[in-house]
Design a protein around this nucleic acid. Structure first.
Lengths: 160, 160
DNA sequence: GGCATCGTTTAGAATTGTTCTAAATCCTTG
DNA sequence: CAAGGATTTAGAACAATTCTAAACGATGCC
């Protein structure tokens, strides 16, 4: 049993476990993502899949991708095509995206943590910027500790 | 001199320093972003600005935002409206976005760093996922150290 | 001051990535 | 085999953003 067959088996298993059908389309989409590990876009995947299955439609590729993501077989990198947001806090800081409320909070990043983050890069990789986003829910204990009320940056524009 | 006037002065200074003109539109857009530090989208900014300048157009808001970003007065959060990318590496890892080539490389994250990252959140904030993206250029020394050749995850799908 | 020039704004069209829709097709099960 | 649901398909719809061309406005030069 070669690697491709193994992956197909794993795929089929996951799908049926979630009450979904293992279809050729899902198989092929999964396969092309595994074949070349280069973070392709939906369009690129569509092109590659089309090469061996010319009848497939873009919508199906999107469907398959969604299915694979929901089964935990692949991940999306640029999560959610949300509108770009703008932020007056110019200090290095992370964002906490509260998925329950949709709100975004600034989170301070200590200098030594930033150093550690840069240190994690292999030699030759020079990062001009770091984007760090947490996703989850914030609950609501201690509102005095969150954004705009005593934390997150020393306020480069003098607002508040 | 109040805070708004200060900010306008700072804005005017930055703009002229970059050979750009301080216009009312740029001023108002900047102002509404500072007023309410809540990471608004372009549409939201458009709505707020329209309240005090009903003739402004959406395109102008986009223009102004771009200008403010390029002057370093604000930052964009969801940088670049790029197509979503898909990734078969299911391990916790960061991405290095090489802006010269457009390529995305996986970068391993040691467990203790992840712990530190979670520790940075204020109490009550519960992060289900962390998204960490570096942007910069990779140069090309030591190709044997980068993605797909010995680093970045122990390969959950058995590819390569 | 008048005029050419260049930066800026505007409205609307165009583009891009993605999702929706409705019909066709495919499996599965009874 | 028929009924039912799941899946695929093509194309329309959508949302965020960018482009375009025309109008406008400020600035510099004589």
């Amino acid at each position: 049993m070669n690697s491709t067959e193994q992956n197909c088996a794993a795929l089929a298993e996951r799908l049926t476990a979630s009450g979904l059908r293992p279809t050729v389309q899902r198989e092929v989409v999964f396969k092309v993502i595994l074949e070349k590990r280069d973070h392709p876009t939906a369009d690129e995947i569509f092109a590659r899949v089309k090469a061996e299955m010319p009848t497939i439609s873009l919508a199906t590729v999107y469907n398959c991708l969604e299915t694979l993501v929901s089964c935990g077989l692949i991940r999306q990198v640029n999560l959610e095509r949300a509108p770009t947001r703008y932020c007056p806090n110019l200090h290095q800081h992370a964002h906490f995206h509260d998925e329950t409320t949709g709100q975004i909070h600034d989170v301070d990043l200590p200098a030594d943590l930033l150093t550690r983050l840069h240190a994690v890069l292999p030699p030759g990789f020079d990062a001009k910027s770091i984007e760090l986003t947490f996703r989850g829910s914030a609950g609501s204990p201690r509102p005095e500790l969150v954004e705009g009320r005593g934390r997150a940056g020393n306020n480069p524009h003098g607002t508040n």
